[in-house]
Nucleic acid binder design. Structure first.
Lengths: 351, 351
DNA sequence: GCGATCTGGGAAAAGGTTTTCTCAAAAGGG
DNA sequence: CCCTTTTGAGAAAACCTTTTCCCAGATCGC
């Protein structure tokens, strides 16, 4: 039992090459290549024999060599500045999902909000000859801190502000807001408040506008949307304003549509602390469908899901077709949201 | 103003090659290569001239060609099954941080818990000739559903169960638990309870054991750790048990060490609902330092941080040295945690 | 039986870079 | 002034695969 019985000379012998396969099969590399790729003409036996030898030797073609020749690396870069990955991870999963079947791998680069870092990563990608780039961020109305406009390879923007003339995919926030309000209306709620994030975010206005329109269409009173932070604390404050002593109980909302799940959670907690029951007295809907939050609220939160995985899938497919030479219609495409119903709105009357 | 003034024939001319640089500078490719890499012998003027030409033409060496030759792709794969990225994202950031300066890029692959998908991704990586692989997961005591044991390229395991004989990096959970208990002791807390996750997790026992030892060392009463789920709901339940009517107020704990931040949040909320003040009556410490949760609790939660970014950095560096041919000591290396103090424990008496 | 077609398979170039070897010219030594 | 050493730079191989010819032998039609 010597200590160095097998020091595992990690040095691992080099991978087997096509040349070796050809030699073992007694053919030329050209023939071997064609046999394995189903190209060229040869007897079925020859092809099969070569295939078997390759199999036996564990041959795997060297993608680097292939890429060099084909001028396609079957690799794309995903740029994000969403450090916590709340938005970019589902998106990434979708992208990956769309690409893996095509043998395409994804370089993930977090550029924070650092131009230098972004530049560095983009150059690294370019040097590695990625076939294309997907740019994604944590908010729809901001550019990544990188210029991707003259890149010679296709770029798709997902969940971030696209360059003019580029193809961009974002969620349909207005549609999402309508979904939420509709749900409330269907449940018979009539005094619907809206508590959302800071004015600096475009989505705040998009959603608020949609909310307003929906209510007006139905001839319902439109409360002024309450703008604040994307935080639970703001949810608490907002409840203090909406359900404060200023107005009588009959002036209270019977529904609150929140700009994200954290606000919604704050709202729900604050309501509970005031003895106002959710969903019996007030229904609450959040936005983002961040499961970890939505499922921990009491009761679990109904929320608008932006379908980020689908968005990622679409972005991946769009990039793929762009790489394949298909011209894609530039401009921003909005993908629908969906409502994930949990228990914070109650059942329809008589439902 | 014709619509097709500049249809932007996306066809982008091909990148400039070394051959073109050489031609433009009136030298051979060999000389050009050596000039740009600081190799070979030539007059300073020649070298400078070539450099300038390269600069002017915007030459960037083709990494595919370089990799093919050097047998190093300057690319590594990161495998994870942590869909929400709570653990793998900070880790990834650390890895990336350690590697980017060395020109190494990272393929991120989420293998969920799907063996087939894992196999697929690993083979794709192998085909793309990654220099090494970092395997990471969402819990320390489980293997990824993939066999990486005979891979011919180095593998480093970070925050997941390593193969025997491989190099693995994990957090020092026992140390983290001691940090928490020490903090309580320093603040004069004496009746410290422990509420944690399910028995199926190794860390539950590691931390509970460290907790127990610390208390015994100090001659303090050791409560039986309460095992449950990793959820807020369990935090509520646990409070009901610890602060129920069964025992008198003087039997109540004055500190609760929680197995993660969600449990801690449940505990804090439940205490508040019972009118028990945090931190005045009871101190609470969480685990994971998941900022989004820790900062939203009222009061903000003191929590043990596993330093996952550092772990990632170390993993990246370890892989790098392995790739460079340095033999690394196999086995599991534990990296220290740190305590992030917020406001859920109060100040030291007289502090 | 002879020219035309077909068939199976190979040689070689291409892709972009690095590195080793080679070689001519210049410099140096005696 | 001749021989050796140094210097500057180029030719070519190598990395691995794909693809475009090309060719020798077989088959076919008449």
């Amino acid at each position: 039992m010597s200590a160095d019985a097998e020091p595992a000379p990690v040095s691992a012998k080099p991978p087997v090459t096509l040349r070796e396969v050809a030699a073992a099969a007694g053919v030329s590399v050209a023939t071997a290549s064609k046999a394995l790729n189903g190209q060229g003409r040869m007897t079925a036996e020859t092809r099969e024999r070569i295939r078997e030898v390759a199999q036996r030797l564990g041959f795997r073609p060297n993608h680097l060599a292939q890429s060099l020749l084909r001028k396609r690396s079957f690799t794309v870069g995903l740029l994000t500045n969403d450090t916590y990955g709340r938005f970019s991870l589902p998106l990434m999963a979708g992208v990956s999902d769309a690409l893996v079947d095509n043998g395409v791998s994804v370089f993930l680069c977090n550029v924070e909000d650092d131009m230098r870092l972004g530049q560095l990563h983009v150059e690294a990608m370019l040097d590695k000859r990625v076939d294309g780039i997907i740019a994604t961020g944590k908010r729809i109305d901001r550019h990544l801190p990188i210029d991707l406009s003259n890149l010679r390879i296709p770029v798709v923007y997902a969940f971030t502000q696209p360059d003019p003339g580029a193809v961009g995919l974002v969620s349909d926030d207005a549609g999402g807001a309508r979904l939420a309000v509709e749900h409330f209306l269907r449940l018979g709620r009539r005094r619907i408040a809206h508590v959302t994030g800071p004015a600096g975010f475009a989505v705040v206005h998009t959603r608020a506008e949609a909310y307003r329109e929906m209510l007006e269409e139905h001839g319902l009173p439109v409360g002024e949307p309450l703008l604040g932070a994307w935080s639970e604390a703001w949810g608490h404050d907002a409840v203090a304003r909406l359900f404060g002593n200023g107005r009588g109980r009959e002036g209270w909302p019977d529904a609150v549509f929140c700009g994200n799940d954290q606000i919604a959670r704050g709202v729900i907690d604050a309501l509970r602390e005031r003895g106002i029951r959710v969903p019996d007295d007030v229904g609450v809907i959040g936005f983002d469908n961040w499961e970890i939050v939505a499922e921990a609220t009491r009761p679990p939160l109904t929320s608008v899901d932006m379908n980020l995985a689908s968005l990622g899938r679409e972005a991946g497919l769009a990039l793929l077709s762009l790489v394949g030479g298909q011209p894609a219609a530039p401009g921003i495409r909005k993908l629908p949201c969906r409502l994930v119903v949990r228990q914070s709105c109650g059942r329809p009357p008589g439902g």
